[in-house]
Design a protein around this nucleic acid. Structure first.
Length: 936
RNA sequence: GCCGGGGUGGUGGAAUGGAAUACACGGAUGACUCAAAAUCAUUUGCCUGAGAGGGCAUGCGGGUUCGACUCCCGUCCCCGGCACCA
């Protein structure tokens, strides 16, 4: 395009490039988007929205990577920005903050490669992100921003850790309580110690060990996911189903290691139940329910016929107990050795022994074989059931039957009790195993006629004594009562959810506010010693290993900072030597509570002032959970972040620090912007922006290439950045395009060549106000033609509804319609243009401000009321009725509103006489205001 | 395997059980221009027809209804989650 030919005052990328930074500077100077708190340093009673209804809108904050933003990243941010700008205009006191999730692996890995300190790269990346977001015109309250790596922030992350460390879960009230209350109970004798010993008779160390066993944050030596390739342990949530690390895709091994855990399992019931009150997408709730995996059933005790130990099993189907024909223990089950007899019992079938001379040998061989398999191998083997007889028999408590006990790896050590009663008639896995080992199958629920295999459905109980004829639910309840009465078991609930592995062997994370004394037991530091600042070290690389070296030992980077680790402190009993905890917290820690800190970001007395928390996040009434009014982010956080954040929030609620018991009342998952990538014949990716489309085929130079659809990324050579789009079209055009592409929650492909449509729309809006040749404002005060006025009010009405429901694509379509209706009019009326500019401004805020100013207004439009439709004008002047004959439209009639039904009917029949071709209508349906349907 | 979500023009998408395809991209034609770009105007689901019109279309097959993209049953395909969880 040649500069000289373009009208001097047309809205172009260059014009946008001049307007946009000017308004961004104006907003920053005037603190336009600062939201007043009810109290504290951010209170402002003179603010235009002080005392107005509040709205807290919150985005999942970004991890500022070295690569910067691509066009996909800001989709949700633009969405919340449009929404909050609209709501602010509509009268709400809107809080919309942004921060940075800046601890984590990439900065550390980059640091290891380049020798730059992670803080240096992190700070540079954060600055770059701030600039990129600022250029988009996002309206944040900049006073409330922070990075999780700021010591002022992670001081409170550490403080919350200490609250969790200093709490225990009291099942009788189903909530966390201060650990001091537990200790007081032991001291005054109102609470017995777990093993019944008298508290007074215990040594201080024994007492500390007992108390440590109750803490919500605790150290355990338990099987954890050890990833030698990363040099760190990982949470279950960070391990893929095939047993590899989600980050880096290295093998993960089960190892017994001493690690910090959080007792999230205690919150299993509440985490499941409170999902019901959340306004979240159902798929996300379902994923959380599945992850937590609450199962209700019973524990049943099976005595052995020859030895002492009793085997406890968990079952969800106590009603099928009469069909339990054998038992299975996980290979790792601790009772296996205790029940194995010296010899195979008389008459043991050869197929059960695995060819071994004694049960001990058979079990040992099977265990060795099972332990040698990785998770991936176990899954890969198509789940053919394997196992071996232990030589032992148990007694089915309900009928006294003697049933064989097997060891098999289809029973998992980590779930339930690690042992099952096998009911092949009602369980597909047990059925398979029973067929292989030729074990008896007893049906205890009547299947439908002709049914083959394990029947897990509903039906009357059979072969089950007093249960016979009962439905499954009744039979379960009846069996549980019987078990409890006879001391053979009790109703029980188990969870798939495991406790949260909370320590990592990394440098770039929050240090634990924990030291160890000479006993080796952990001691929480007092608040006065926070923050525990991450020390500067020479070598911040974690020790990594050969990814397949399962026997390697974790080594934390902080353990090499000797002068930091070995410390003299006075913890109230005089100066003593202590050793600091050298693990760091996982990346999730910082995002577990950030929604609270935005409310009161500089408070150094508390993580958040309770009045401010109650104002922004408090429950709106009895039964309401409180929380952020709208939380927007990707569905990839459906379990990890969202589960951890809910857990911390509930602990803080239990301890009385906050009034909301859920962090995010409403959740919205935005879709992803994806992009096409192209590969040549050899399978190599070619730059997407150099591929041309000819007749439905794609060419790179003269060679044809194949198109695929997927993520935006460097390796796919299809990255488009917001900065490029801003340079080529301006931020407003980019914003409108992203919002107009489709519904916010749907993923869609990026298409740069379609962006021009959004620019044309903004150009037309601009042209309505400004003469492109002279720059003069061309708006008049003439009244609008009535038809256009009616359209204007229909658009206002529709746009408000769309905005409230985050349906920005249809809101923009309506604005385009209005613009297209105004464009051909001989004069441009202020009556239409001002509402149009106001309605367009959430999407194109810089253009909106500029035109508002040109229209003669002072200051910013951020607090000007959003247009309101006149209901009188929403009623159409006349109504067009389509007239259907046998479901097909054969004519139309036009009538004034409120025409009597008889009249409409007569007019309609007259309009379709030709189509009726003399036939008599059997039936005529008049839908008022809609259509007329004639049946012949 | 189980559980979700989704299949509408060349493309992104629109449609409280009531005119399918709004709005935009792309395409076509025209105006302006020496020309091109930009802009503006017209047009654009498919088939058929000179035209008026007619027929067919919301993955596929049924059903409910005066009327179905929308509700119900079956089926195929795509995307996502979980995966021996007793």
């Amino acid at each position: 395009m040649s500069e000289s030919d373009t009208p001097a005052f047309r809205y172009t990328a260059a014009k946008a490039g001049e307007i946009e930074p000017r308004w961004q500077a104006y907003w920053a100077e005037n603190g336009t988007f600062d939201a007043p708190n009810p109290t504290g340093e951010l209170a402002d009673p003179t603010h235009p929205r002080a005392g107005a209804p509040k709205l807290y809108v919150h985005d999942m904050f970004p991890y500022p990577s070295g690569a910067g933003l691509h066009v996909g990243h800001p989709l949700g941010y633009i969405g919340t920005d449009c929404y909050t700008r609209y709501k602010r205009m509509a009268g709400f006191n809107v809080l919309h903050p942004m921060g940075f999730d800046a601890f984590g692996l990439p900065a550390e890995q980059y640091a290891v490669q380049t020798g730059t300190h992670p803080r240096t790269t992190t700070e540079a990346n954060v600055e770059r992100y701030r600039d990129q977001l600022r250029r988009l015109g996002l309206a944040y309250d900049d006073r409330r921003t922070f990075a999780t790596t700021d010591p002022d922030y992670y001081r409170w992350t550490q403080w919350i850790f200490l609250q969790i460390f200093n709490s225990w879960f009291d099942p009788s009230v189903r909530k966390a309580r201060p650990i001091d209350e537990l200790i007081a109970g032991f001291e005054n004798g109102s609470r017995p110690t777990p093993d019944g010993r008298a508290w007074a008779g215990l040594s201080p160390i024994e007492r500390r060990e007992i108390v440590d066993g109750y803490r919500l944050a605790y150290i355990s030596e338990a099987p954890v996911n050890w990833c030698p390739g990363l040099g760190t342990v990982l949470a279950n949530e960070e391990v893929t189903p095939d047993g590899r690390s989600e980050r880096g895709n290295f093998p993960v091994f089960q190892r017994n290691l001493k690690q910090w855990m959080m007792r999230i399992t205690e919150y299993g019931d509440r985490l499941v139940e409170d999902l019901d009150v959340l306004n979240w997408p159902e798929p996300v709730k379902l994923m959380q329910r599945n992850w937590i995996g609450r199962s209700r059933g019973a524990h049943v005790e099976f005595p052995m016929d020859a030895v002492e130990p009793v085997i406890s099993v968990f079952t969800t189907r106590p009603d099928t107990l009469f069909g339990a024909t054998y038992m299975v223990l996980a290979p790792e089950h601790t009772l296996v050795d205790a029940i194995v007899p010296a010899q195979w019992p008389e008459g043991t079938r050869p197929a059960w022994t695995g060819g071994h001379a004694t049960p001990a040998e058979a079990v040992a061989a099977y265990r060795a074989q099972a332990a040698g398999k990785t998770e991936a191998e176990r899954t890969a083997e198509a789940r053919v059931k394997t196992g071996v007889f232990t030589g032992a028999y148990a007694i089915n408590p309900v009928n006294g039957d003697r049933i064989p006990v097997f060891v098999a790896d289809y029973v998992l050590a980590g779930y339930g009790t690690g042992a099952i009663m096998a009911v092949p008639g009602q369980d597909a896995r047990d059925w398979e195993f029973a067929e292989i080992f030729d074990l008896p199958i007893i049906r205890t629920v009547q299947p439908p006629d002709g049914f083959e295999g394990a029947y897990v459905g509903e039906g009357p109980a059979i072969n089950s004594d007093w249960l016979n004829g009962m439905g499954v639910a009744d039979a379960k309840a009846s069996m549980i009562s019987w078990l409890e009465e006879h001391g053979h078991g009790r109703g029980a609930t188990t969870f798939r959810l495991r406790d949260w592995l909370f320590s990592r062997q990394r440098y770039w994370g929050e240090p634990f506010p924990i030291v160890y004394d000479e006993t080796g037991l952990p001691i929480g530091l007092p608040d006065s010693m926070l923050p525990v600042v991450l020390p500067d070290v020479e070598d911040f690389s974690p020790r990594t290993f050969d990814p397949d070296d399962a026997d390697s030992e974790p080594e934390t980077p902080l353990s090499r900072a000797k002068e930091w680790v070995e410390v003299e402190l006075d913890l109230g009993d005089g100066p003593k030597r202590y050793t600091r905890e050298t693990n760091t917290m996982p990346q999730w820690a910082g995002s577990c509570w950030y929604e609270l800190r935005y409310l009161d970001p500089h408070n150094d007395k508390a993580l958040v002032d309770s009045e401010n928390e109650a104002y922004w996040m408090g429950p709106k009434g009895p039964g309401d959970c409180g929380g952020v009014d709208l939380y927007v982010g990707g569905v990839e956080h459906a379990v990890l972040h969202l589960l951890y954040a809910r857990f911390w929030h509930k602990v803080l609620y239990d301890l009385g620090y906050i009034s909301s018991f859920e962090p995010f009342r409403t959740l919205f998952n935005q879709g992803y912007i994806q992009a096409y990538a192209y590969r040549d014949a050899r399978g190599f990716v070619v730059p997407a922006d150099e591929v041309v489309d000819r007749d439905g085929r794609w060419y790179y130079g003269d060679q044809e290439v194949q198109r695929e659809y997927g993520k935006i990324g460097k390796s796919l050579k299809n990255v488009v950045t917001p900065d490029e789009m801003i340079d080529q079209y301006g931020a407003d055009t980019f914003r409108v395009y992203e919002m107009a592409m489709g519904p916010l929650d749907v993923s869609r492909p990026w298409e740069t060549r379609a962006v021009v449509g959004s620019q044309r729309f903004l150009q037309r809006v601009w042209r309505l106000v400004v003469d492109e040749e002279t720059g003069a404002v061309r708006v008049t005060d003439e009244p609008l033609p009535l038809e256009v006025r009616r359209l204007l009010h229909r658009v206002i009405d529709g746009v408000r509804v769309d905005m409230d429901e985050l349906r920005f694509n249809t809101a923009i379509a309506k604005l385009i319609e209005l613009t297209n209706a105004l464009t051909p009019l001989p004069t441009v009326s202020r009556e239409a243009v001002e509402p149009l500019v106001l309605m367009a401004s959430p999407f194109a805020p810089h253009l909106g401000e500029e035109l508002w100013r040109k229209l003669g207004h002072e200051g910013s439009l951020a607090y000007v009321g959003f247009p309101v439709a006149d209901p009188a004008l929403l009623v159409a002047e006349s109504i067009t009725y389509p007239v259907q004959v046998n479901g097909k439209v054969r004519g139309r009639i036009e009538v004034v509103p409120d025409t009597a039904e008889d009249e409409v009917r007569a007019a309609a029949l007259a309009a379709v006489t030709e189509a009726l071709s003399g036939r008599d209508p059997k039936k005529v349906i008049v839908v008022p205001g809609r259509l007329v349907s004639v049946v012949v």
